[in-house]
Design a binder for these strands. Structure first.
Length: 239
DNA sequence: ATTACGATCATCT
DNA sequence: GATGATCGTAATC
């Protein structure tokens, strides 16, 4: 049983998860990016909890990274990047898509991590009273909501839910107007990142996707072999 | 299987 | 007025 290669939607115990503290984010973006792999993004609304394991990220630096929004200095749009670490930076792009970043570095220094893909998870709040309790209705609510948010049929493969920065925002209902600037480290925050007992396997490093400037820098990171990473599937070698 | 393009808008030149 | 940290569909090989 290799958790990072789990082929489908997993069940997650709410117990045993702990909220990442501010200091987790107070470091260079490439370090924070690697450390975020395997952690869990939570969106808690009044009636539901959406959860996804972070399986793909990109680091964006500050003044020395031409591909970063912070490269040309602070503007109203990117102000969050220059504030305290551990906050959500949400921007709108291509006229259609929202993207979610997590700010890092101490206040005054810009830098962030773009979340590029999640493996959808189900949160189970209490002790399961039976196996049936887990496998039936309650255990599929989160994915149902994500599919509905994405306009996906129940027959669509699960990797269509959140394998891409725009997709994961749509699945979680994340937009700039409602989520930009949220502090991810507060116990009552709608958006949080937590750790559980998950251990990463191998991490793959590649150049970042879809950028023209600084396209050679290897600042994209993902969990090797994970089926929920964006882009075309890596086919297993047969020879 | 791979490539091309349209949608659609906040931000910056 | 152009561009982009994208995605889904259509066209082409």
């Amino acid at each position: 049983m290799t958790p990072h290669r789990s082929g489908g939607t997993g069940i997650l115990q709410a117990k045993g998860m702990s909220l990442l503290p501010r200091r987790f984010y107070c470091a260079a973006p490439d370090l924070v990016a690697r450390r975020l792999l395997g952690k869990i993004l939570l969106s808690r609304t009044g009636t539901s909890v959406l959860a996804g394991r972070i399986v793909e990220v990109e680091a964006y630096l500050g003044a020395d990274d031409p591909a970063a929004h912070a490269f040309s200095g602070a503007t109203p749009r990117n102000a969050v990047l220059f504030g305290h670490p551990g906050h959500a930076y949400v921007y709108f792009i291509y006229g259609m898509h929202s993207c979610l970043n997590v700010s890092c570095e101490p206040e005054g220094r810009a830098g962030c991590v773009l979340l590029r893909a999640l493996e959808p998870l189900e949160i189970y709040g209490g002790e399961p009273s039976s196996v049936e309790d887990l496998s039936a209705e309650r255990a599929t609510v989160g994915e149902k909501i994500m599919r509905r948010n994405r306009g996906l049929a129940s027959s669509a493969p699960a990797r269509m839910i959140a394998s891409g920065p725009g997709r994961l925002c749509q699945a979680f209902g994340i937009a700039r107007a409602s989520h930009n600037g949220i502090d991810l480290t507060l116990p009552d925050s709608q958006l949080q990142i937590v750790k559980d007992g998950f251990r990463d396997g191998e991490i793959v490093t590649t150049p970042r996707i879809g950028i023209r400037k600084a396209a050679d820098r290897a600042l994209r990171f993902y969990l090797a072999g994970n089926a929920f990473v964006s882009g075309k599937q890596e086919l297993p070698r047969t020879s």
